[in-house]
Simulated scan of single mutants.
Amino acid sequence: MEKFVEILADKQALIERTLTLVVEKIEAAIGTRGRCTIALAGGSTPKPLYEALSTQALPWDKLEVFWGDERYVPPNHPDSNQLMARKAWLDHVPIPDANIHPMPTDGNDPDSDAKKYHSELGKVFQVPESEFPVFDLILLGMGDDGHTASLFPQTEALKVRDRSITVGNKDGQPRITFTVPLINQARCVMFLVSGASKQPALAQIFAASAEELDYPSRLIQPQGELWWLLDAAAGEKLKR
């Protein structure tokens, strides 16, 4: 694993730097493998990144878009990660519908829908369901509690090692989420972290030792590149 940590002046600089890196990774993957597989993060931090991506001139038909996690709500629900990314980005570019792979959340059975998405990954990546697909790029956020995707502290989802997709749990509410081993197969993982409220969790994640089940982002150690892109408010204490 190659690890990179960058602390940018403010959130705008964070988004601009991430945009540059994401475009580079997309173009490199398409140049090398003929397509780019990308998994999107939810939350408020990446929204301006998606808006910026909507203005880029990229070979959209070569992009395959997935989500790293999703709230178990209908696709048109205001809390839907899919809806946010579509409104900010995907609805504004000529990407084929077949290249967009939202997590199913309409089966009234989170476990069954998680299995469906696991199967879909196997088909798109043309790997047996017993193997983990290798994403070109996975975008992640991090919560104040150190969670990422829907991998929350001290939850069962953190321990899943035999499949790509599982059910996460946030205060009793189910989520569909990538598992730790799937994320760690990626060629590149990028964390986007903004705000002073993230400082305590970041201190534990960057500490020499800490309890991984308390700070799930510590578990993310991909085979490829790991980028931590922080604004100054989030990364202030890491500079000392």
Score class of each variant (00 low, 15 high):
30 I>C: 03
93 V>L: 05
43 G>A: 09
22 V>K: 03
22 V>W: 02
90 L>T: 02
80 S>R: 08
78 P>S: 09
70 E>C: 05
84 M>W: 00
59 P>N: 01
43 G>C: 08
19 L>V: 10
67 W>E: 09
75 P>R: 07
8 L>F: 13
53 L>Y: 02
39 A>M: 04
95 I>Y: 06
59 P>V: 07
41 A>K: 04
20 T>Y: 13
35 R>P: 06
35 R>F: 12
28 A>M: 06
93 V>C: 03
20 T>E: 15
32 T>Y: 14
38 I>T: 03
31 G>H: 03
57 A>T: 15
50 Y>C: 10
9 A>N: 10
30 I>S: 03
61 D>W: 10
77 H>Q: 09
40 L>V: 01
15 I>K: 05
26 I>P: 06
28 A>R: 05
81 N>C: 10
77 H>V: 14
89 W>R: 01
37 T>P: 09
86 R>Q: 11
91 D>T: 05
11 K>F: 06
87 K>Y: 14
21 L>V: 12
27 E>W: 13
21 L>Y: 15
31 G>T: 10
77 H>D: 07
70 E>G: 08
17 R>C: 14
47 K>S: 13
36 C>T: 10
62 K>E: 01
31 G>C: 02
84 M>K: 00
31 G>K: 09
54 S>V: 02
93 V>D: 03
69 D>N: 01
27 E>G: 10
34 G>F: 02
70 E>D: 08
46 P>H: 06
28 A>P: 09
47 K>N: 14
7 I>Q: 06
71 R>Y: 00
53 L>T: 11
14 L>P: 12
